[in-house]
Amino acid sequence: MHMQSSESEPGMKELCSKILTATDVGVRFSFPTATMREHFKLLEGSQSLDFQVMDKYSKVWTFRLYTRKNDGHPKPVLTKGWLDFVKRMGLKVGDKVIFVLHGNHNDHLGILVKRNIKLLGSEHWADL
Rank of each mutant, 00 (worst) to 15 (best):
Lys96Glu: 14
Val100Met: 00
Thr79Asn: 08
Asn70Asp: 09
Pro74Thr: 10
Asp84Asn: 10
Leu109Phe: 03
Leu109Asn: 02
His102Phe: 13
Ser122Pro: 05
Ser122Tyr: 14
Gly103Met: 11
Lys118Thr: 09
Ile117Ser: 08
Leu83Ser: 05
Gly81Leu: 12
His105Val: 10
Val100Asn: 03
Asn104Asp: 13
Arg115Ile: 03
Lys96Tyr: 09
Leu101Thr: 07
Asp127Lys: 08
Arg115Asp: 00
Lys80Leu: 14
Leu109Tyr: 04
Phe99Thr: 06
Gly94Lys: 01
Leu83Gly: 00
Val97Gly: 04
Val100Asp: 00
Asp95Gly: 00
Ile111Ala: 00
Leu83Ala: 04
Gly72Asn: 13
His73Gln: 12
Lys87Asn: 06
Lys75Glu: 14
His108Cys: 15
Lys114Ile: 03
Arg88Lys: 03
Gly72Ser: 14
Thr79Glu: 12
Leu119Trp: 15
Arg88Pro: 02
Lys75Gly: 11
Val93Arg: 07
Pro74Asn: 06
Asn106Gln: 15
His124Tyr: 14
Asn70Gln: 11
Glu123Asp: 10
His124Lys: 11
Asp71Arg: 11
Asp84Trp: 06
Leu119Met: 15
Phe85Pro: 02
Glu123Thr: 04
Leu112Cys: 03
Asn104Ala: 13
Leu109Lys: 02
Leu83Val: 04
Asn106Ile: 12
Val97Pro: 02
Leu112Asp: 04
Gly94Phe: 01
Asp71Trp: 13
Leu120Phe: 15
Leu83Met: 10
